[in-house]
Design a protein around this nucleic acid. Structure first.
Lengths: 208, 208
DNA sequence: CTTGTTAACTTAACACCGTTAAGTAAATCG
DNA sequence: CGATTTACTTAACGGTGTTAAGTTAACAAG
């Protein structure tokens, strides 16, 4: 059935084209200014065709949100090679900030915007992409604890807190709340704050 | 000119009614599900009347966002009385989280949603409400530093980082990204993470 | 007391939005 | 060849923010 396969391929192609169109639009206009009608127009199909390939708008942006995690994992990939868990932890936080700064719109979709989360099974607490990225952090922090860092602290809650630190930095930046910091420091504020996070984690340990 | 005053009063009244209508709607449906038409209908005026009292939708939500800061300041008010700066710092972080949990929709508007920031002068870096709240934190951290805490750290960047920590916790919660933390810990996660932040700040100091 | 003006508000419309029901035209199958 | 399925579109529903033009009532001046 080569003919059936060709059809299958074609369907895949169109799904891919929709996704690419959506990706291009949201990359330079942001999520809020990308509509189904825009996406359809860009690939010369009617808006309703989109609905043959995606359940709804949330579903499209869930797919892009998944892409975002693939990109984030590329930033994380080589960090598995860092043997010392505390060094790895520092590297993770830097890679996270780097990813966020270089892929602001993806970051927005992955960790701020509500839309893609609506595509997840309501009530079910599964969020595979998030889980995977978070578990890398949890494992690293567990190794730190095993080596004597963060003594007596709860691994998972500490992991969440460390994540919250870097997420806080990035999301204040993305949503334009950094005006409160005096103008001079606004450049590279995210990186400076990230260094501060690392400094805090280091001091916690060194001074025991 | 008592007659002119009465008119003035009436105008004030309607502006207030619009705001109250907007407030009530967004408090139980959230910002994303509150429209100008909803607001108008609730007070039995046509949608276009709104535009006689507010420049646009962003302008309305900027007003509500300002209200949010008044409420936040009430949470902060008594904390000025805490003499020890480090204790005050801890209390600020707790009050901040408390405010966020009890006023989720306001928090969203104040620190996450883009809309109210659009009402600010573009290019100008002024954000008075944010400045005032942030300066309270900066002053407290400066006092901490004067007392020997956080030695050698940059006051403003540390302040921003501490803010980012608590904001990170709250915004991950509000935008539903806490699924990654195992079910048992999801209750009071924000408070647990906040305690972790406090623990981190304490350890930094105590172990010198 | 009438006229002209202004203030407060509405109607109607524009240009969008996500989404669905119904229809069409071509390809495939029996 | 006729029936059915596939892939897509047209038209529509009920919403959105916003603006131009129109109405109606209150007021001021002659």
């Amino acid at each position: 059935m080569t003919v059936a396969k060709r059809k299958e391929k074609h369907k895949e192609d169109l799904r891919g084209k929709i996704l690419q169109s959506a990706r291009e639009l949201f990359m330079d206009r942001g999520f809020e200014h990308t509509s189904i009608r825009n996406i359809a127009e860009k690939i010369d199909y009617s808006p309703t065709t989109i609905y043959l390939y995606f359940k709804d708008k949330d579903d499209i942006f869930y797919a892009l949100h998944q892409e975002g995690f693939i990109i984030l994992n590329q930033y994380f990939k080589s960090l598995g090679l860092v043997e010392d868990p505390f060094e790895r932890l520092k590297a993770i936080s830097r890679a996270y900030i780097q990813f966020a700064i270089e892929n602001g719109e993806y970051y927005d979709l992955m960790f701020i915007v509500r839309s893609p989360m609506n595509a997840l099974d309501k009530e079910s607490n599964e969020w595979t992409e998030g889980d995977n990225a978070f578990n890398f952090l949890v494992a690293t922090i567990q190794e730190c604890i095993d080596k004597g860092y963060f003594q007596g602290m709860h691994t998972e809650i500490l992991s969440f807190t460390v994540w919250a630190m870097v997420h806080g930095i990035v999301s204040l930046e993305i949503r334009n709340r950094c005006k409160v910091v005096s103008a001079l420091n606004q450049e590279n504020l995210a990186f400076k704050a990230n260094n501060m996070v690392i400094e805090i984690l280091e001091r916690m340990h060194n001074k025991k």
